[in-house]
Design a protein around this nucleic acid. Structure first.
Length: 868
RNA sequence: GGGCGUUUAGCUCAGUUGGUAGAGCGCUUCCCUUACAAGGAAGAUGUCGGGAGUUCGAGCCUCUCAACGCCCACCA
């Protein structure tokens, strides 16, 4: 890497270069953040990938975007820290270990908590380096010396402190509530971990006989098996159909248990029969009704999803699965002739996000965080702009959720995670919530662990040394600057970080939340292993190169954060660009004969072409800086692509083959590489290292990011150069239309602008294969083709090569086009309202366009006459 | 039920204060012109989902309809 004298290899081998370049950065510790620096700080914490995970396209996008921001800010000469780490991913990881155990015919209970955890730790330790190693393949410039894990000691301490503090403030409580229970995970899960799926079901109408009198009340239910836990039948108080029944008692079929008929507004008169059975232990709404009416809670389904063996459940039903119990119950109801009607009914069923098992709403004792008081400042922070979402529309989404926040169930009946710091006296059962066990001989710790998101919610400050607020990292790098993530975890993660950050550090944990879209397959489907439509970023890197992957992904990012559809071939876009950069750079460097010192840019010695490319570079530099600052990252990819390919390569490098200014060639290339470096770090570093220039920094990654410079503005000369390009294109067009082979040169006669054209004769000779150039006012030549560029007519005598009719047709087509535009321009100018209400500059511009069009049409018309 | 997003060239998508549409891929013709065939030159292609409105002027603003997608809520 340090050898700057040898040339670039003739073929671009992405992987070879990328490996070498990354090694160079790593070995020189160039990603290491210095907390003691007095430079302005810029920091990002990585959304910690699951410890057991492997790199997927989502990481590739998320990681690329973070790295772009980090590298850009590093080049702005800030002290940057990109904090890496992994999440212990409670349920996900535990599931993996349990699956492995199952292969040995064991369950976690067979080996016990201690051995299970030892095994899980071993697994986690083996895997936690893997995913971050894969991030390196992305070119991630994070500071691995600071790598963290949500279950490491520092995070553990932070979690304990937060839990104890929230408990002492009354913001954490334990209680019996109905929760979403996953019978497979054997744990409670939170509301947002529950997804709803539409399922075809039935609505069973069951007759409950009235006690001591004739008649019955017919209830409707989608879950007849829960009827054994019924404690009431509810009707709407305004439902005259049932008015007389309120307060009476009915007798349940199958068990004969007696329950009251109550009135509650919650019941919808028009749904089903208008009468609803109340099962507080197995339905969240019934639970609420139960509380309002002081009803008992009868549990009939256990934690495994099996019907309980108790006095309430008939013996034939006991021990059955929910599904079997439903079948059997219906059959029994039928036999007892109390099943009035069955109708098909589509309804939503809760599913566990992790394993897709149907959720059982279950009454159980769990820990909760009281969210409303915590949400208030978190709402304010976004409303006042202390935290900004990009794109803005996600703010609404966030606020809506926060304003309707519900308490957060944080306890999980798992083993892998932060064990809840609550201790119970072995004899009295007295509970102590504390950082440490008050007396290990007499107190036993709560067996539950915390929701994974509890610890990731502290991520921005627990990784910076908190609760030690005097630690260097915390002082320097907290609050962090930008958070980059997908919209799918705004509620899970972003919202929790904001609430926790504000509560415990009194500061928003970041000032900007940059939300990007999700990666999807070419049909817009979510990528998943089960669908078999995943694309492995590691494969793409091997095939196309990391820089190609990064560039392609970046170019697909829109400001609105639309989802990104990808397919393997799309990455050819980035690969081709990288290849172009390599070859153009190789050509440029091959042509440098001067020494480093001689390559200094001399603004007094610039050709028209030099001024043009410098002007273009300067414009692009300005746009790039503005666009990154506004998170229009996709835009910078296309600006750089267009500049390099269509301006530098297609024109400037071609022109340099005729007449070259080495200093400008090198200056533009170097600045382009710097501008591009955040997106394509490896290729830019590799080429920069080989450039024969004076380097102020060890790598391009630390070089200063180019900025707009007033002295490089050459608008007027640039315009002239554009005219030159238009002329060349027009001549080439004629050559193509008349099938003039490259081997036959053309003569041209120019009727205007002699000063400009005489300067660029060598360009015309080489790029349009022009033989001779003549200046002549009002030239008339038969058997000629011609073109008009602005105010200049160029005649190309073609003798027998030309079919005059073809040329006339060609020119008439042009006139048609010009005239249709002129028509609309005239319509506008003849409209008094347009003249009076349109802004002056627009009117002037339109007038100018009118003149241009008229002139051009006139020239063409006159010429056609002469051709005849 | 509430909210959000999308609809532009054959395909994938840009289009930042409203001034008659762009890219990549694909397609047509020509070219191995010693940086690059992963390339070069020239070219074709769109009543910007439908309708209405505001405006001198609408892909862009307002309303409405339609299709597709997502999120939240979870009436048994």
């Amino acid at each position: 890497m340090t050898n700057c004298t040898d040339e670039l290899s003739t073929t671009y081998n992405a992987r070879e270069i990328e490996k070498e370049t990354y090694k160079f950065w790593e070995e020189n510790n160039l990603f290491k953040a210095n907390a003691k620096s007095n430079k302005e700080a810029y920091s990002i914490v990585i959304p910690p990938p699951n410890v057991t995970g492997v790199l997927h396209m989502g990481h590739a996008l998320d990681g690329t975007l973070q790295d772009i921001l980090i590298r850009y800010n590093r080049m702005l000469q800030k002290e940057v820290l990109w904090m890496p780490g992994c999440d212990h991913a409670g349920i996900a990881t535990q599931n993996v270990i349990e699956k492995n155990l199952a292969k040995e015919g064991l369950s976690r209970h067979d080996i016990g908590r201690e051995k299970f955890l030892a095994r899980t730790w071993q697994w986690a330790d083996e895997h936690k380096n893997k995913i971050l190693e894969q991030f390196k393949l992305l070119g991630a410039s994070f500071d691995l010396s600071r790598k963290r894990f949500t279950l490491d000691e520092g995070c553990s301490n932070a979690v304990k402190k937060v839990f104890v503090d929230l408990y002492n403030k009354g913001l954490i409580y334990k209680g019996s509530y109905i929760v979403n229970w996953c019978p497979r995970c054997q744990s409670a899960i939170s509301d947002i971990e529950t997804n709803y799926e539409t399922e075809d079901g039935h609505l069973w109408e069951i007759s409950y006989a009235l006690k001591d009198e004739m008649g019955a009340i017919v209830i409707a239910t989608t879950r007849p098996e829960t009827m054994f836990g019924d404690v009431a039948v509810a009707v709407n108080p305004n439902d005259f159909k049932y008015k007389d029944l309120i307060g009476k008692t009915c007798v349940m079929p199958l068990t004969g248990r007696q329950i009251p008929i109550i009135a509650d507004d919650y019941v919808d008169k028009s749904f089903g029969t208008g009468a609803l059975k109340i099962t507080p232990a197995h339905d969240p709404n019934d639970f609420e009704v139960g509380l309002r009416h002081n009803l008992p809670q009868i549990k009939v389904i256990d934690e495994k999803g099996l019907m309980m063996r108790n006095e309430f459940v008939p013996p034939q039903i006991q021990g059955l699965t929910r599904e079997k119990a439903r079948e059997k119950t219906v059959k029994m109801l039928e036999e007892n002739q109390v099943l009035v009607r069955v109708t098909k009914h589509v309804h939503n069923v809760g599913k566990c996000q992790r394993c897709n098992t149907t959720i059982e709403p279950l009454l159980s004792k769990q820990w909760f965080v009281k969210m409303e008081p915590l949400a208030k400042p978190a709402i304010e922070a976004v409303k006042t702009g202390a935290i900004k979402f990009i794109p803005e529309r996600w703010e609404k989404n966030y606020l809506m959720w926060m304003e309707n926040i519900r308490d957060w169930c944080i306890s999980r009946q798992l083993w892998w995670g932060h064990q809840i710091p609550a201790y119970y006296h072995n004899k009295t059962g007295e509970m102590v919530v504390a950082l440490e066990n008050p007396d290990p001989n007499n107190y036993t710790q709560d067996t539950d662990v915390l929701d994974t998101w509890f610890s990731s919610g502290l991520w921005p400050f627990e990784t910076m040394g908190w609760p030690d607020i005097n630690s260097d990292d915390y002082k320097k790098f907290y609050p962090t600057s930008t958070l980059v993530t997908g919209f799918d975890i705004i509620f899970f993660w972003v919202a929790r970080m904001i609430t926790m950050g504000l509560e415990f550090t009194k500061k928003p944990p970041f000032s900007t939340v940059y939300i990007h879209g999700l990666i999807r397959d070419e049909h817009g489907q979510k990528m998943s292993k089960s669908k078999g439509n995943t694309i492995d970023p590691v494969d793409l890197i091997e095939k196309y190169g990391c820089d190609a992957l990064r560039f392609t992904l970046t170019s697909l990012c829109t400001y609105g954060g639309q989802d990104i559809k990808i397919s393997d071939e799309k990455f050819e876009f980035g690969r081709n660009f990288a290849n172009k950069i390599w070859n153009a750079s190789r050509f440029t460097l091959m042509n440098i004969t001067k020494s480093k010192e001689e390559l200094k840019l001399d603004l007094n010695n610039l050709s028209l072409a030099d001024k043009w490319i410098l002007n273009e570079l300067n414009k692009v530099t300005k746009e790039i800086n503005e666009n990154i600052k506004n998170y229009r990252i996709g835009e910078i990819a296309s600006i750089l692509y267009e500049f390099f390919w269509s301006k530098y390569c297609d024109w400037y490098v071609e022109l340099s083959k005729i007449e070259k200014n080495e200093a400008v060639l090198v200056y533009v290339l170097e600045n382009f590489l710097k501008l591009l470096h955040p997106i394509m770090p490896h290729i830019t570093e590799a080429i920069w290292q080989k450039m024969p220039i004076i380097k102020e920094t060890k790598g391009i990654l630390n070089a200063s990011y180019p900025q707009f410079e007033e002295k490089l503005v050459f608008e007027a000369d640039s315009k002239k150069m554009e005219t030159v390009f238009e002329t060349i294109k027009a001549l080439r067009n004629i050559r193509a239309e008349f099938n003039i082979p490259l081997s036959s040169k053309i003569d041209i006669i120019i009727d205007n602008n002699e000063q400009l054209y005489s300067q660029i004769i060598p360009y015309l000779k080489r790029l349009a294969k022009v033989n001779s150039t003549k200046f002549e006012k009002n030239a008339t030549h038969s058997k000629s083709a011609y073109c008009v560029v602005n105010d200049t007519k160029i005649t190309i005598p073609l003798k027998d090569l030309i079919d005059i009719n073809q040329e006339i047709t060609r020119q008439k087509k042009k006139i048609d086009k010009l005239e249709s535009e002129l028509k609309s321009v005239l319509a506008r100018l003849n409209n008094q309202k347009f003249i009076s209400s349109a802004p002056n500059d627009v009117v002037e511009k339109t007038k100018g366009r009118k003149k241009e069009l008229e002139d051009e049409i006139k020239i063409i018309q006159e010429t056609i006459k002469r051709l005849n």
